[in-house]
Design a protein around this nucleic acid. Sequence first.
DNA 1: CGCCCTTTTGAAGAAAATCAAGGGCAGTGG
DNA 2: CCACTGCCCTTGATTTTCTTCAAAAGGGCG
Lengths: 237, 237
Amino acid sequence: MVPKPFIEHVARLVNLSERDRRIVSSLPVSLMTVKRHRDLLSSGERPDYLYTVVEGWAGRYAIRADGSRRITGFMLPGDFCSMHAVCRQAMDHSITALTDCLIAHIAVSDIEKAIAEAPTLDSAIRRVKLIDEAMLRTWLVNNHDAVRMLAHLICELHARTIPDISTGPSTLNLPITQEHVADALGITPVHINRMFRKLREEKLITFSGRIIDIPDIKALHRRANFDPSYLRATSNQ
Amino acid sequence: MVPKPFIEHVARLVNLSERDRRIVSSLPVSLMTVKRHRDLLSSGERPDYLYTVVEGWAGRYAIRADGSRRITGFMLPGDFCSMHAVCRQAMDHSITALTDCLIAHIAVSDIEKAIAEAPTLDSAIRRVKLIDEAMLRTWLVNNHDAVRMLAHLICELHARTIPDISTGPSTLNLPITQEHVADALGITPVHINRMFRKLREEKLITFSGRIIDIPDIKALHRRANFDPSYLRATSNQ
DNA sequence: CGCCCTTTTGAAGAAAATCAAGGGCAGTGG
DNA sequence: CCACTGCCCTTGATTTTCTTCAAAAGGGCG
């Protein structure tokens, strides 16, 4: 059975007819757990399955010549890990479990059959790729000053976990370490820590453990210059 | 008539049958010139045409809150500017002519017709998007130290203009200003200039005007830790 | 020639990396 | 129950990298 987050995520991308929904929910899905620090996919692999995160957080990353790591994207519950599989391409980066994860996978051949029956799925895939691309571009554009970068990342992750709340106080469960954040923004863990402190001093966030409280999400958006529109591909025509 | 660079570029992506070639070369194409500093497409637009560069260099860019610009990609002769058009999506960034450009454009509706007749084109489009994505990821991973970044960019542009030469001395015509390079790497023009000097001092490049001479391309690759494989999507199964 | 655009260089200041060490907290085992 | 251990967060001091501000020099073109 297809787990709920999967079909909900697809439904968020495109309008599914009743028939489409039936096709998607009849896809044969397997579940597996992946322990934190374990790689789900490695660079160079040609996965035969489309993996999607059901529970936990995963991350795309590459290792640099000096051994340091750059995280190029986070995958949250409902996100697809291996669009490369659907394009029959080798991975040009690895994917790791940032927390313990529950992962669903679907054979690419089954996906292809489903696309043939329900062409809507093709545009869903295209949209996922557009959003991924937009996120990459945004990260690139946004890498100027460390505080703003951190604020922006918090805004992005908040918007992706709680897409409907747009004003007032809010909260973000950030189940990853500050080192992960550092790897994602391309700066030192030590420096990330100082930037967290700065945001606290500016009273834009507070946190206990790994729950970040955001007293005024709009204020954080302004600080980060965050515009969530890149996260939702615009409607098809 | 379709200009040569267009069909050659498509042919570089996928194997075209004689029939495919005929379909592609019968696409109705219009040519236009775009003066340097002129925008070809603006963020938010929904272009009805697929634009491709025939002569000159163009660049994708976004403007930051503080007014500064980030170039997120270069488009060289043969490159496609507006894949967003094919996906019927609004542009999330602008495209500008970095030099005087000759631009070809093809109506998206005609492209769609051609795809229906020659499905190979669909995989060509997918491959273009994969390469674009890989370039973005590489830029993100590679933004650590300024000399290396510059060396890497030179390698990338060299590999894209002269894809077959892989060893020995070589040359790169860089028709853009150091400020453009700075905007692409996210650092100050002043600092870029110093990094150019550093590469000269390391005897990895020399230049007069805008022609960069590379005495030993392999040495530059090593310095930049450049691996060109991300520029060519692997073959389709 | 004079103008504008680009490159180059210098000096001072800001931002981030590096090096180093202390502190909290959860899990483990005596 | 408490000590130990490992992991993560936090902070300080120092050095490196990059930015900013400023100005001079080269080069093409009217």
